[in-house]
Design a protein around this nucleic acid. Sequence first.
DNA 1: GCGCCGCATTGACTTAGGTCAAAAAAACAA
DNA 2: TTGTTTTTTTGACCTAAGTCAATGCGGCGC
Lengths: 230, 230
Amino acid sequence: MPNKKYFKLISESMLFAGLPDEHINALLLISEIRDFEKNQLIFLEGDKGIGFYINVDGRVKIFKLSPEGKEHILHIFGPGEPYGEVPVFSGKTYPANAASIDASRSLFFPRDAVVALLAKNPAIALNMLAVLSMRLRQFTVAVENLSLKEVPGRLAAHLLMLSLEQEKKDRVVLNIPKTLLASLLGTIPETLSRILSRMAAQNLIEVQGRSIRLLDLEGLRLLAETGRLA
Amino acid sequence: MPNKKYFKLISESMLFAGLPDEHINALLLISEIRDFEKNQLIFLEGDKGIGFYINVDGRVKIFKLSPEGKEHILHIFGPGEPYGEVPVFSGKTYPANAASIDASRSLFFPRDAVVALLAKNPAIALNMLAVLSMRLRQFTVAVENLSLKEVPGRLAAHLLMLSLEQEKKDRVVLNIPKTLLASLLGTIPETLSRILSRMAAQNLIEVQGRSIRLLDLEGLRLLAETGRLA
DNA sequence: GCGCCGCATTGACTTAGGTCAAAAAAACAA
DNA sequence: TTGTTTTTTTGACCTAAGTCAATGCGGCGC
């Protein structure tokens, strides 16, 4: 029974972590498996929000397009992370586009079934409230970064965050091409490249392809704080 | 009984609109009145989130401070609007600062009482899920604006939004000083001032103090779309 | 091996928008 | 009114970061 895998995934997802088994099973029952090939569109900004997803395998990006067609990535979601849940409750449309980065698989939860389930189980709703709140908090940080800090500061903050996530504390490995990273930081590949060189020149980091050594943790922290490279 | 006023306010607030009277009364019972003088701090980023507020009179701003102390306003809330609700569910600290703009009054809802109430009434929780989702969507737009559009585009979008909110469709009146508006748009007063002149020179708008005539709706819309002033 | 394609880097150039400083205009209190 | 403070505007200047264009590099299929 491959359901075991999805049971585990749901029970460990941010959205539903900490729920009793019966609730997880109820969720499992209303979900559908959806597979996407590499670079496949999942939903478009403006589409009616008929349900939300939890990513199982691969990575999914949430992005906006500028009038000129330039793509700005808002989030990248890995396994266990939920996406597209906003319009399920507000009853409106998706506020951004979603597409797979790799070949990937998600669980889909149809809106009506979810709403019925939540009405019966307040605990699930409370849990979800907490999750949305967290995401809201992350956005607050994102806005702060975009409006108050310059690119080197954002990059430093990002590297430090990665080094916390990965265990090796003085070496991080990018799991995405630098061009995606640039978009994630709200800049362009050229600028990112120059800033990496600049930071290397100041012995803050050492770049070897996608692997980056953090040479001066203290300096990076300072840079992330003040947002400005000397 | 002045409670009537607060009953109405709660029942018309985004957060609790559409709830039956008994629930509104329950909410009224757990709330406390808090008064603030002009420019008074309400809570600080990092403070423990012991509850949330619904604004009654006056205006409240939510803002972040840059390392150099520059203030960037994330939201301005008027009567009936809830704020500070994020940490109530995430159980963490407030993600930004809050302060009154005018002398103002809010209703305060303590965390524990709210959580207990929601656990009993799933309908209230669903409503709040919708509100948090909406706010999340707003942030998505804010991030988009900050990263994809230039200041003139953001300003045009803001003016058009105001003209929708206020009824007069070709004239908007700022209810905040231009210096606050600058912060709200993620820029500084000098830049805002120059851009207003520039837009006036192109017959897009006509500025008289805080009152702004929108002369060329179509042009403004184009500017908000493309994000670039000719 | 070869050519090809997507990613990454580098250089020359342009510009939006920030800083600093000062003046002008409004708002407000005595 | 008059003086005082806050808001708004203007000018000179500087810098971060974007655009455009060329080149380098690495993997992959054949």
